[in-house]
Design a protein around this nucleic acid. Structure first.
Lengths: 215, 215, 215, 215
DNA sequence: ACACTCGGGACGCCCCGTTACT
DNA sequence: AGTAACGGGGCGTCCCGAGTGT
């Protein structure tokens, strides 16, 4: 109640609830929402149904909580924060890609991909509650990049004719697509290649990068 | 080329099997593999379990067949064929994007996204058989673009210093990511933006490195 | 001794579980394991699948529990206890046979035979878990008789040259065979005849090798 | 039609039907009637449902045919014929036991036991058609022995005061019980022990075996 | 007559997310 | 927060007929 997370219910120190969320995130990340049974989650957490239904009204609510209290913070901590720490937006985009690739090289991550992207693809078409929550994360991500680009425009680093929103959308979508591709290929190389291309694209947004007037 | 798939039995006139595949594709496209119950598939097709299990040994095999005999042909027909019909690879990439966007504007497609991408994200981490089959589709797609780029290099259109494989990977990944993004947003605009950026990126592959036309 | 079985969980007051076991025993006794559907068991017990799978992990486990917690106690109570109460082993064998015949004359028993023998024949070749559990019951039965005979030898009643183990094996096997025969014939007479012969055989184990009284 | 088998329909040379019966016998012998799926039988025989249902109206009829055309001949050939070839009935009983033990020592037989006994226990309480057919086999077996004993009485070898029918019942039941016991124990020793006891019992039926008048 | 492909559903066991009571 | 019970639904198997061809 004191340290409120912006998005949802204020959660103080509730170890059981946290454990549930951790395990649930793990499972849903690895296998998706549908393939994650409550049974497995309970077994893995050493808790019982009573505990789960005490904290969450249903599996769906648990899923929502996973998105809000695990996926969102993760995205913020892992990608948005590093992005904000670099002033040059193009470099910041690179930083973000580097961060993702580092993550991808950790054991087990390549097989599981990106928790956000996984849920987006599996759940967006199935459940509106999921869709909205995931959309807001994507939007936050996108707008963070867009803001950076706009700041760059203001500072004269970024081409004022470029469209920061469109570019940010593209960068997010491409990175997600790249992770998905790498996950399917079980290989980091595709991601690395994509990252290079994203950087190349981002570089074209620079002021000096557009020497010729467009047709 | 139209009737027989290389990998499995060349089916002659088997309307039941086809109907099953059609419906299964539909459901798995719309809701994903896990959320598609055999019951629904059966009900929608007007057939019974006997019919299904006569043609497919399990739900998994049905899923595999959907990938091989529906998703693969669809990708070939819809994206690879148009790509091959254009000689300029950069234009061909644009053509591919246009084709995807057209598709996305059709009723109901926006909500469902891309059948290939959906299954890739949902199943790659869960089942190896799915992963392999989907990977081979992605690879075919990727290599088709790469071949186009290499041909462009031979013809002096494409920058000989560029890496066709990496570029092709990026293009595919970005397009998939873009569709996924649009699906979540329930909006074609993000896809359109991404398409423009992909085109811009592709244009940088040109020999003269022509500047990107804004979307 | 009455409530807890040594091998599995000592169940306190679990009426549901007991009811399930009772009904399952009934069905498996009457129709065998394979022909006993969970549906029937559930219907007969007035419970639901949830209850069943709360207590037993599978039909197989239910079957095992039936053997351990119903068949075994039944054999102990009905045949081994009476056997132990008679000091003369030959008379005790007769007592055991009498007890079985009494049982066989009860309504419905003739058609169903011996629960132990039924399961032995149906399941020994199919499932190792069943086989082992049933074997341990048979062994307990056999060794109880063998002990009685050995005691008889020590007391000078039983021929010291006879082989108590072999004799006990024979007695058990013959009684089981006799019940099986009677069950197929739907007639107690065969069992009665066999019982007489078993007694005759047992009498030959006496020291004086008293001649057999005809049935 | 020319070479009629006594029990059922006159079957000439029908290879398909024979193959089906062979395989069905095999499966039902090994796993019992219920656990033998038509699917397995068909797969093992390389035939299809069409063939099966052309020759047999149902699984039940197939089962009946197995009993009549496989189990019955087997019992006759293996046990009754040897019995008939020995004139001394006591020796003939021994012969029969020897024959069974030989059989039991063959690879795979110990695990499967006696086809007749298996079906008797599994099916007698479930299906009247099975029960009757199996009963008639048991009765033939029993009466064969009884006839031998009566012949022995006529020849002055067998105690005229003994009851050939009861003795025969006992012998058959004991042997079946012994095979069942051995099957469960996965060990021939119990059978051997029983066989010895059966012989001992049979010996008491001899004229000279009863020196003392019964009480 | 004989055998095969195809299709039908009822039923198999099991698991699911959930609720009720303690 | 935990145990017990719920009951609908999961996929797969069962035995069986229909239709076809040979």
């Amino acid at each position: 109640m004191s340290t409120a997370t912006p998005s949802t219910r204020p959660r103080h120190g509730d170890a059981t609830r946290d454990a549930l969320l951790d395990v649930a995130f793990d499972q849903m990340y690895a296998k998706g929402y549908h393939a994650s049974g409550l049974k497995d989650i309970l077994a893995a957490s050493g808790l019982t149904k009573g505990a789960l239904y005490h904290h969450f009204g249903s599996k769906l609510e648990l899923g929502y909580a996973v998105v809000e209290e695990r996926v969102l913070p993760l995205v913020r901590e892992r990608y948005l924060k590093p992005f904000g720490q670099v002033e040059d937006p193009v470099a910041a985009v690179d930083r973000m890609g580097v961060r993702m690739e580092e993550e991808l090289r950790r054991k087990g991550v390549l097989e599981r991909g990106c928790p956000l992207n996984n849920l987006v693809q599996e759940m967006s078409g199935v459940d509106e509650g999921f869709r909205r929550r995931l959309e807001s994360i994507l939007e936050e991500w996108r707008s963070t990049i867009a803001s950076g680009l706009r700041r760059g425009q203001a500072e004269g680093i970024i081409d004022p004719d470029s469209d920061p929103d469109a570019a940010a959308t593209f960068i997010v979508a491409s990175l997600l697509g790249a992770v998905g591709f790498a996950k399917n290929a079980r290989d980091v190389v595709p991601f690395h290649a994509c990252r290079g291309a994203v950087n190349a694209y981002a570089a074209t947004l620079r002021v000096e990068a557009a020497p010729l007037p467009s047709s």
